[in-house]
């Protein structure tokens, strides 16, 4: 926290202390579906050891920014560096947790098997899954409280359990940068607690976490930085500086209900 506070006193809200080697740095990202830009000229830096919430109204381009930064979508323009290097050379250091609804949970596979997918970079094409790989996958399941479900078919899980399995798969990757797309969407309170505990542990280990987030009331509790988006970037920086009513009004406009603003500092 101190480091981030220092960074902000420099007056550099756009970047962390060391942008050229930051876990992820996005410059001039523009993505459009057809004629209309969904993400317009966004710069963002996610400093090492930080935990950033990407927030903004529906259709603000939050998921799109994440996907374009990871090469899942092709941006019109934009440069992404990961730990100061091109994305393709650093993929082994990235773990991505897609939206739970983006996959078919009827797929014929087990919980443990999904977590083992996180090891596929080191398993390569043909290396066999050894007991030590299984033990590692099981360990990741234990960290999210899902070890007892290892042999279940994934379709038999609740939404929250599925989300925890996805997080366990990300943990198995042993990455330094974790990017999550709405990990709390449609999950139970216990899962939300379990996930945030794991993410905070990751941050304590010096890992970097970035998450698309919806619930404005938990931003301050869960994250230390925010990136507020509404096609363009509205604000970026430590929660205390950037997560202000003025910035939220700018992003959400009339869509921001008074109840959502409760507890948010009036000025930054």
């Amino acid at each position: 926290m101190t480091r981030i506070a220092l960074a902000s006193t420099n007056g550099q809200t756009m970047t962390g202390e060391c942008p050229e080697t930051a876990p992820m740095s996005i410059r001039g990202m523009t993505v459009s579906y057809g004629q209309k830009p969904v993400v317009f000229s966004v710069d963002a830096t996610f400093p090492e050891g930080s935990m950033t919430a990407i927030i903004g109204p529906n259709g603000a381009g939050k998921s799109t920014l994440l996907k374009a930064s990871l090469g899942i979508l092709r941006p019109l323009s934009g440069i992404v560096t990961v730990f100061g290097r091109p994305l393709n050379s650093q993929r082994h250091r990235i773990a991505y947790v897609p939206q739970r609804a983006s996959v078919d949970w009827d797929f014929p596979t087990t919980v443990l098997d999904v977590v083992l997918m996180g090891l596929s970079r080191e398993l390569g094409l043909l290396r066999l899954v050894r007991p030590r790989h299984r033990a590692r996958a099981l360990d990741c399941l234990t960290r999210v409280g899902m070890a007892e479900f290892a042999d279940r078919q994934i379709g038999q899980l609740s939404g929250g359990q599925q989300q925890r399995v996805f997080l366990a798969r990300a943990l198995a990757q042993g990455a330094d940068l974790y990017l999550l797309d709405e990990p709390f969407a449609g999950v139970d309170a216990a899962t939300e607690k379990a996930i945030i505990a794991v993410l905070k542990t990751l941050r304590a280990e010096g890992k970097t976490v970035v998450s698309v987030h919806h619930d404005l009331s938990t931003v301050g509790d869960y994250f230390d930085r925010v990136l507020i988006l509404n096609t363009s970037k509205i604000a970026e920086g430590p929660v205390a500086d950037a997560f202000t009513e003025a910035n939220l009004q700018a992003a959400y406009g009339g869509r921001l209900a008074t109840a959502q603003v409760a507890g948010i500092p009036a000025a930054g």
Binding site: R91, P98, S102, S120, L125
Partner: peptide
Amino acid sequence: FWRPLKISTFDEGFAQVMG
């Protein structure tokens, strides 16, 4: 190509981020 087929069939976005 069992492994890539399986992973990309189940979760294309994840497979892409893995490279």
